[in-house]
Design a protein around this nucleic acid. Structure first.
Lengths: 128, 128
DNA sequence: CTATCATTTAGACGAACGTCGAAACACCCG
DNA sequence: CGGGTGTTTCGACGTTCGTCTAAATGATAG
């Protein structure tokens, strides 16, 4: 495993984080963009994974090991591992084994992409 | 159905209006908040619904009728209707029948809640 | 009132998902 | 090396999801 195995477009996005698509109400999403984003959203659309992501992201030091996470749930270790794998495959978190424990951290670029999608409807682009 | 339960949209719509929770990496989500948000995210975690939402939101005049939407997909009308119902049940869109056609519009408060969730991991964690 | 068009409901089916127990793999410590 | 702990993979099971066809409901025009 070692770090991410994300198959996402990770080339030269530079400082552009949510550059894939405009906010959802700005212009119709293309079929491809929608499919790609749906994969990302599916990964997050689960109470357990949502809490995992939140726990990892808000953990002191920016990372958390599985041992920190499992106790918060009434689920078996394989199940937690499965959910972490889903998040990792989606490119939302990275992981690394250091000695006995495996550590996880958030990949902000990916999360920001979701933020950009639903972002500022407040300043609508209805100006045309 | 009909005019659904439209909870007044044009109120003061700051981006933090219905924000139930801090950005995902600020503090761990409670079990309840996670469950509630997962329902919202599941509603959006589908390519078809994502495009529907986007088409509705970006449509001129702020609303679109089903007849505007069905043609963009290779799906039967019942299937589109099903997806619209999911979005409506989640509180993401509102609907109203006017004569022959049914019109849909986005409910920005709900969308903004998602935006706030994934929002500013890097940017405005500002003075606070 | 009947014909017709637009949309939703009802029921069914296969695919995908969340969970588990058992087993395998990875690493640390005597 | 062998035992022990932490984590992931493997199969399996029941549930949920996306789609369809067929039929029902709503509204307008003759």
């Amino acid at each position: 495993m070692t770090s991410t195995t994300l198959p996402l477009v990770r080339a030269g996005q530079g400082a552009q984080e949510g550059a894939c698509c405009a906010p959802i109400a700005r212009e119709p999403l293309s079929e491809g963009d929608a499919a790609e984003l749906a994969v990302l959203l599916k990964a997050v659309a689960d109470p357990v994974r949502l809490r995992l992501l939140s726990m990892i992201g808000s953990h002191a030091g920016g990372e958390a090991c599985v041992c920190d996470l499992t106790d918060a749930f009434d689920l078996t270790a394989p199940t937690i591992s499965h959910h972490l794998k889903v998040l990792r495959t989606a490119g939302l978190i990275g992981s690394e084994r250091r000695g006995t424990w495996v550590y996880y951290w958030i990949i902000p670029e990916t999360v920001n992409r979701l933020g950009a999608l639903f972002a500022p409807l407040t300043a609508p682009a209805v100006a045309q």
